[in-house]
């Protein structure tokens, strides 16, 4: 994508009177890091980037910002939030609209067609991070890694993030402003991660998840980063009743992870953020993708495509499958 055009557009958007700020990506503090940027003026807009490292889903900030009580006499700020989205992120915005988590008038969606993002862990393993800023660019058949002035061409297959291999919607499905031409979609790969678990027998799966969930440190970054986990009063924070004890052990961790995955069934748009941020490397995406697949195959429903759709778990069809009922 043309960065000049991106920055120019962003500057125009933030100059608008009805826009409060723009959320995009900027270079992080070192290495391959990219940080979310909250842009309020043209100067800030000049920092924006869009590269294969912009894997994070910024739509989570639409619901993360606290709605604090206003001092008496002060009017609420009703200006719009501008947001840069990739294909997957745009589905989160749509799903938020479906659930009335945000209002369409409250956001300016800037679509960025996405040729596929890089898996940070794979990248850092092959080409260790350095203290200076590194850059990664898309090339015709892969990525160009520029590290300490040294350029390396890498094939797409080598570094592409798992969620992008499986991606079916690289182009934003909802946008007010589209930056650049839509990219050509690719054949989604087979979901080896889910398959690996699926082909185990029931005890094998339990053993597999027991190992994974035992590592959970309950930092709740998976919940917080998720654009669709935005309940004001999360069941995990509840003390009365205490659905999930605060104690960190396998039983509670499993209950927490099942609850989290269940609450995202039919809502998860597969942006893979939960898996990316997990400090314990739990493959949470497998849980979510499995549920998304079930919802798609059994109920013919896909979240985040149509802003007019009914929320999956708050609707039904009389002929929903019931082969599991005794």
């Amino acid at each position: 994508m043309d960065l000049e055009k991106l920055r120019e557009t962003a500057a125009e958007v933030v100059a608008r009177e009805d826009v409060k700020y723009l959320i995009g990506w900027k270079n992080g503090s070192y290495g391959y890091r990219v940080a979310p940027a909250f842009i309020e003026d043209a100067e800030g807009a000049a920092e924006l980037i869009f590269s294969p490292l912009c894997i994070s889903n910024l739509s989570t900030y639409l619901t993360l910002v606290e709605k604090l009580p206003l001092p008496r006499g002060q009017e609420p700020d009703t200006r719009k939030i501008a947001l840069m989205v990739k294909g997957c992120d745009s589905r989160a915005v749509t799903q938020l609209l479906v659930e009335k988590g945000i209002e369409r008038d409250g956001v300016v969606v800037i679509g960025c067609p996405c040729p596929g993002m890089i898996d940070y862990d794979l990248l850092a393993e092959k080409y260790p991070e350095t203290e200076g800023l590194s850059e990664v660019k898309w090339t015709d058949d892969g990525f160009l890694v520029i590290r300490d002035g040294e350029e390396t061409n890498v094939t797409r297959d080598e570094l592409l993030a798992e969620k992008c291999r499986l991606c079916r919607y690289p182009n934003p499905l909802i946008s007010d402003i589209m930056l650049g031409e839509p990219v050509e979609t690719w054949e989604p790969a087979e979901d080896k991660g889910v398959e690996e678990v699926d082909k185990k027998d029931v005890n094998g799966r339990w053993a597999y998840w027991e190992e994974q969930f035992s590592n959970c440190i309950r930092c709740y970054s998976c919940r917080n980063v998720c654009p669709l986990c935005y309940c004001q009063d999360c069941i995990l924070d509840r003390l009365n009743p205490t659905w999930v004890n605060r104690a960190v052990n396998f039983s509670e961790n499993t209950a927490f992870n099942i609850a989290r995955a269940f609450h995202l069934a039919g809502r998860c748009i597969e942006c893979g953020e939960c898996e990316r941020v997990c400090p314990a490397n739990i493959p949470l995406g497998r849980l979510n993708r499995k549920m998304a697949r079930e919802v798609r195959d059994k109920y013919g429903f896909e979240p985040g495509l149509d802003p007019e759709a009914e929320p999956f778990q708050a609707s039904y069809k009389p002929d929903d499958p019931e082969d599991f009922i005794l």
């Binding site: 029931v202 005890n203 053993a207 269940f262 069934a265 079930e294 708050a314 009389p318 929903d320 499958p321």
Partner: peptide, 23 residues
């Protein structure tokens, strides 16, 4: 329509629990 909602939700739960390894 309460049981229709339940059918959808608990059907999903059954699938999820099976994937996690609950018999």
């Amino acid at each position: 329509e309460g049981n229709y909602y339940a059918r959808r939700r608990l059907g999903m739960l059954k699938d999820l629990m099976e994937f996690v390894g609950v018999d």
